[in-house]
C-alpha cells in the first residue's frame, strides 16, 4: 500500500473517515476531522499543514477568528473551534444545529511526507 515516492497531495476525503460540524453550545461551532489511519494522522499533524491560515482560507474568514485547533491523538482527530456568526436559532441563523458547516473541509488536500517508518515521525529536527 506504500505510496512512497509520490508527493502529490491527497484529498482529505480519502484520508479521513469522519468530517463533520456541530454546535458546542449555542455560540460555538466545532469541526471534527477523524483520520482513518493513525500513521497518516501523525504524519499530517507533524508536518504542520493544518494551520489557522488553511482553515481560514477555506471558510473565507480571518485566521484570528478561529478560536482553537486541537489535535486529539487518542482518536487520530483534529478539532477546529469557531465562534458562530449568529447564535443558534437567533434571527438570521442558517443552521440551528450547526450540522452542515463542514463542506469547505471536503475540498482540502494534504501532502504526506515520504512514508518510511522513521520519517513519518516527522521532519521535526
Amino acid at each position: 500500500m506504500s505510496t512512497t515516492h509520490t508527493a502529490s497531495p491527497r484529498p482529505l476525503t480519502e484520508l479521513a473517515r469522519v468530517i463533520r460540524s456541530k454546535n458546542s453550545g449555542p455560540f460555538t461551532l466545532t469541526l471534527d476531522i477523524i483520520f482513518s489511519s493513525e500513521q497518516e494522522y501523525r504524519a499530517i499533524k507533524e508536518s504542520g499543514q493544518i494551520t489557522r491560515e488553511l482553515i481560514a482560507t477555506a471558510y473565507r474568514i480571518e485566521p484570528e477568528t478561529i478560536t482553537n485547533i486541537v489535535f486529539f491523538d487518542p482518536a487520530s482527530a483534529v478539532k477546529i473551534v469557531l465562534p458562530r456568526t449568529v447564535a443558534s436559532g437567533s434571527p438570521g441563523d442558517r443552521d440551528v444545529y450547526g450540522a452542515q458547516q463542514h463542506a469547505p473541509l471536503l475540498g482540502l488536500s494534504f501532502t504526506l511526507p515520504q512514508a518510511t517508518p522513521d520519517s513519518s515521525r516527522g521532519p521535526r529536527r
Binding site: V18, K22, N23, S24, G25, T28, T30, D32, I34, T67, N68, V70, F72, P74, A75, A77, K79, V81
Partner: peptide, 12 residues
C-alpha cells in the same frame, strides 16, 4: 475516543 470530540470545544 472519538466520542470525546462530539459537541465539545476541547476533547481533553
Amino acid at each position: 475516543a472519538a466520542h470525546s470530540l462530539y459537541e465539545k470545544s476541547d476533547p481533553y
